[in-house]
């Protein structure tokens, strides 16, 4: 019998994505490394990374960006958490489609929403500047916090909460010792989904910020078209932050899972 060179198996259906992913996900990321660690002559060089890490300005830009991203996720969390809690309560959300109402604004182009917000803020006497940028980020990224929280909280096992009540916990104790720990996975993915775009955005700052605020995203946007190696080095720095955040959040999730399993 002739041996067939290629035997079709169900896993063969993933080969297209394996090829696509290898070429267009893995190789581009490796190219960031390549450009970050070379110079224009394609020789190994740390000059770009040195220029970034040795400058005091870098740390100011990073600190501003990180602080703004932390504030954004925190404010989103403080608004979205109680909202998700209420929405997962059948008393306030009989049809379950009300969640859709919070998602629909995402279908308006985010630059336009941001621009409309600028006009609205100026009506209320808030000019462009730090405050406007923060409001804009909260406004733009809020649904990314709400959705994972809602999904997690509404799929919690109600019997856990009832057990808490039956065993004599007050509603407040019940919240802090049962609901909150169980919703940590939702908080983690909500924070990742809002922190990450807030850390790297530049368009919101361009539309709502003044010249005093310069974010890491603006830096990349200013250099990507001319200084490829420098842009690669900046993207590499950002990539390190992404990786650190993922590792940190992944660990938090794991320990919480362990704790709740005990």
């Amino acid at each position: 019998m002739k041996k067939r060179l290629f035997k079709f198996h169900r896993r063969s259906f993933t080969y297209p994505y394996l090829v696509v992913g290898l070429f267009f996900v893995v190789v581009p990321l490796l190219l960031i490394l390549f450009y970050a660690f070379t110079n224009r002559q394609e020789q190994f060089s740390l000059s770009n990374l040195w220029e970034i890490t040795s400058s005091k300005l870098t740390y100011k830009i990073l600190a501003d960006s990180i602080l703004l991203a932390i504030l954004t996720s925190l404010i989103c969390l403080l608004i979205a958490y109680p909202l998700a809690l209420l929405l997962s309560n059948a008393k306030f959300n009989r049809s379950k489609t009300i969640v859709l109402i919070f998602v629909i604004p995402m279908w308006v182009n985010f630059l336009l929403r941001t621009y409309a917000l600028r006009e609205l803020l100026s009506l209320f006497g808030v000019g462009i500047g730090y405050k406007a940028v923060l409001i804009g980020m909260v406004y733009d990224f809020f649904p990314f916090m709400l959705l994972p929280l809602y999904t997690t909280i509404s799929s919690l096992d109600k019997s856990h909460m009832e057990a808490g009540c039956d065993l004599g916990a007050s509603p407040i104790q019940n919240f802090f010792r049962v609901i909150l720990p169980l919703s940590v996975p939702g908080i983690v993915s909500g924070v990742i989904m809002t922190f990450m775009p807030a850390l790297s955005t530049f368009a919101i700052n361009d539309l709502l910020g003044d010249a005093r605020l310069y974010l890491f995203g603006n830096w990349i946007n200013d250099y990507y078209s001319e200084l490829w190696n420098f842009a690669g080095a900046l993207a590499f720095v950002m990539l390190v932050f992404v990786a650190l955040l993922m590792l940190g959040m992944g660990r938090l999730n794991r320990t919480e899972n362990k704790a709740s399993a005990l």
Binding site: P28, L31, F34, I220, Y224, A231, G232, A235, L239
Partner: peptide, 9 residues
């Protein structure tokens, strides 16, 4: 932004 730079490079 990182994805965008990666594709560009």
């Amino acid at each position: 932004v990182v994805t965008a730079v990666a594709f560009m490079l």
